[in-house]
Write a protein that binds this DNA or RNA. Sequence first.
DNA 1: AGGCGCTTGTGAAGGCAGGCACAAAGTCGC
DNA 2: GCGACTTTGTGCCTGCCTTCACAAGCGCCT
Lengths: 235, 235
Amino acid sequence: MTDAPAARRGIPGATVARLPVYLRALAGLAATGVDTVSSEELAEAAGVRSAKLRKDLSYLGSYGVRGVGYDVVRLREEIARELGLQYDWSVAIIGMGNLGHALAAYSGFATRGFRVTWLVDEDPNLVGSRIAGLTVIDMDALATQPPAGLIGVIATPPTAAQSVADRLVEMGVHSILNFAPCVLAVPDGVEVRKVDLATELQILAFHEQHARAELGPLADLAAVEVADARQEATS
Amino acid sequence: MTDAPAARRGIPGATVARLPVYLRALAGLAATGVDTVSSEELAEAAGVRSAKLRKDLSYLGSYGVRGVGYDVVRLREEIARELGLQYDWSVAIIGMGNLGHALAAYSGFATRGFRVTWLVDEDPNLVGSRIAGLTVIDMDALATQPPAGLIGVIATPPTAAQSVADRLVEMGVHSILNFAPCVLAVPDGVEVRKVDLATELQILAFHEQHARAELGPLADLAAVEVADARQEATS
DNA sequence: AGGCGCTTGTGAAGGCAGGCACAAAGTCGC
DNA sequence: GCGACTTTGTGCCTGCCTTCACAAGCGCCT
């Protein structure tokens, strides 16, 4: 997991990070008509241990019935409320490059309680154009009407990310999702979560390398071939 | 973080997850001509505490010089080696939707030790077309030449993700990065890291809601407005 | 050559998260 | 109406990660 920051209202950060997974699992169960689920079943659907699931849910209150399980609809509502999903949250995507484009068109946000409301870019050629049904604006235009509860998504090159973050903070945003591969400095009270694609791959590479090392030197040759291919390409 | 799995070779999972961040910070320092850095400076650049940084680096060995600091070039090499980045890793992206497209075009992979080598999709209309300089193939074609050390990136809809994962495992892949919002079941020895964009936003929503609650009921009204707007849109 | 100041590397302590196991509590069958 | 069965909620323990604090080590200055 990326960083699990300080817990609020007594709910551990690790638990908060898992609630969306439970919510997803519950949505799947509800779609198939299940109306009651045991911690064992739900845990399997969510990919965790049942004891962990029960402990997580216990932080929300006692919404289960002993001997029976959890009411799917009720539990869904409770988790959604805990996550603040009883209303949609507005999302502004800053940076309309490859990634920003894809995010703007990504349907997964709308179905999970979020509405992409603003698309922002600095490039004059992009400002004014329409992407995914929205008109691209610049940061100044966004700053004129900073809505309360806005979540900022930074999809700019890393060089621009800090200044964008500064401006977001300035206009009162205190939740930022950062796709730019860099460290953002923000004041206390502003929550930054980062998604770094290359970092994830590098972590996988570590495991891949060490899994390979355990197979002995023979298995290592395959990776060396990759290295050779690289040299060909760069020479 | 997503899950920090079992450590190998004694390096804690939490440390492995931070090594890429250090690597990035070192690259930045090297670009500005710095050749020696103290743990304090590097920690600041990486957004961590210096004690944590030193402990992390100590797992790799003693590459620092007391009273001086760390040699930037040397430390970079050591971390890169530990992560297995002395050679490029091949990456196959499965699912050429919005996200898959953006990932294929994302330049951040190539500059960090990865080469997108295969683009895969099931749609006959897409197979054979060219995206970002590569020809899209289908899973069968990928299976004919499963290269050792391949990392699979799943960018399909969630309904297809499990079957894609099964096929990847079948062809010997044991490192998977999953963008589909679902839980993947894989055998032991296969490493799955997941990136779920909506989950990240939901975690932010939790913090946003509770940060707001602390400001009192007045501040809560703004969010309710958003809820009203939603009802208008859905009615 | 010797001492001084700076920085690393690490033992120890504290805190958080995960897993186990069981008592509490509710339902179902008879 | 009562007992047996099922499943939740949770206290305790264990292990990992983080933080603190300091001794060890290195270079530099005198």
